[in-house]
Simulated assay, not measured.
Amino acid sequence: MSTTTRPRAGVRRAVLWLGIAMILAGAGVIGYVAWELYGTTVLSRERQQDATSKIEEAWGSGRTEVSTEFGSAEALVEIPRFGEDYRIPVLEGTSDRALGAGFGHLDGTAGPGEVGNFALAGHRITHGEPLRDLPKLREGDKIRVLTREKTYVYALTSDGDDLVVPFTSVWVTDRLPDNPEPGGVEPAQRKGQRLITLTTCSELFHTDNRMIAFGKLVAEEPSA
């Protein structure tokens, strides 16, 4: 046997195993991306339905405060422009667990129908993506917030994609958001208003910017 055969055979084996390793690594990356884009959404929509069912069951039995495995729940959100079947639970806080099952109600902001700013956060892609179509919302579109006693109807005062800010712009969740940019998008600067703020990622993939939509309370109805 030639003395050069063994080294060449060794090189071929090394190249073969390197190729296999690269294929497996690529398959792993594709699998991870597929899970993030589709798997998490399927799972989160199941969680949304489960939390919604628990909330409705609790209200039907006369309980106002509802505890789910994803956190404390207080309301359901309907956005007619997103379809008749759109009904997303609102969970307290913005932990990954809460946002993976619905809207997160930002700590320290007003409750449904209260004076101040009822601020909600939701994913735009993956994890149920409740605000994927936020850019399609237009000024005047309704957001219905259902509680056991009342349904609060808010109307948007800005288009869904009118305002994009860095994630550090905490003013958007203030009691009365006041845009530091002259002439920038903001609610009417009147005290005592009952506002709602929706916040999500400004782009479908990773971004440090947030898309913001503001609204104000326009009606209250008895809950069915």
Rank of each mutant, 00 (worst) to 15 (best):
residue 37 L to S: 11
residue 80 P to G: 10
residue 47 R to I: 08
residue 109 T to R: 04
residue 23 I to T: 15
residue 41 T to I: 05
residue 76 L to W: 07
residue 103 F to H: 05
residue 94 T to D: 06
residue 78 E to P: 07
residue 103 F to S: 02
residue 88 I to A: 02
residue 13 R to K: 06
residue 88 I to N: 00
residue 64 T to L: 09
residue 74 E to P: 03
residue 45 R to P: 08
residue 72 S to Y: 08
residue 36 E to I: 13
residue 42 V to P: 08
residue 107 D to A: 00
residue 29 V to G: 08
residue 26 G to W: 14
residue 105 H to T: 02
residue 30 I to M: 11
residue 101 A to P: 06
residue 14 A to L: 11
residue 36 E to Y: 15
residue 77 V to L: 03
residue 14 A to R: 09
residue 26 G to F: 13
residue 81 R to I: 11
residue 72 S to K: 12
residue 43 L to N: 05
residue 29 V to F: 11
residue 65 E to I: 10
residue 47 R to H: 15
residue 36 E to T: 09
residue 62 G to V: 08
residue 85 D to E: 15
residue 61 S to Q: 15
residue 88 I to E: 01
residue 38 Y to W: 14
residue 63 R to W: 05
residue 55 I to G: 02
residue 45 R to K: 12
residue 35 W to C: 04
residue 105 H to M: 05
residue 70 F to W: 13
residue 59 W to Q: 05
residue 22 M to G: 07
residue 50 D to M: 11
residue 111 G to S: 14
residue 97 R to K: 07
residue 39 G to T: 09
residue 17 W to L: 12
residue 44 S to V: 05
residue 25 A to L: 15
residue 43 L to F: 05
residue 104 G to W: 00
residue 92 E to K: 07
residue 50 D to P: 13
residue 15 V to S: 01
residue 34 A to R: 11
residue 65 E to L: 09
residue 37 L to W: 13
residue 99 L to D: 00
residue 73 A to H: 04
residue 47 R to L: 05
residue 89 P to S: 00
residue 108 G to D: 12
residue 83 G to Y: 05
residue 90 V to N: 03
residue 23 I to P: 14
residue 109 T to M: 08
residue 97 R to D: 01
residue 14 A to H: 02
residue 109 T to D: 06
residue 31 G to P: 13
residue 44 S to W: 01
residue 103 F to N: 00
residue 51 A to Y: 01
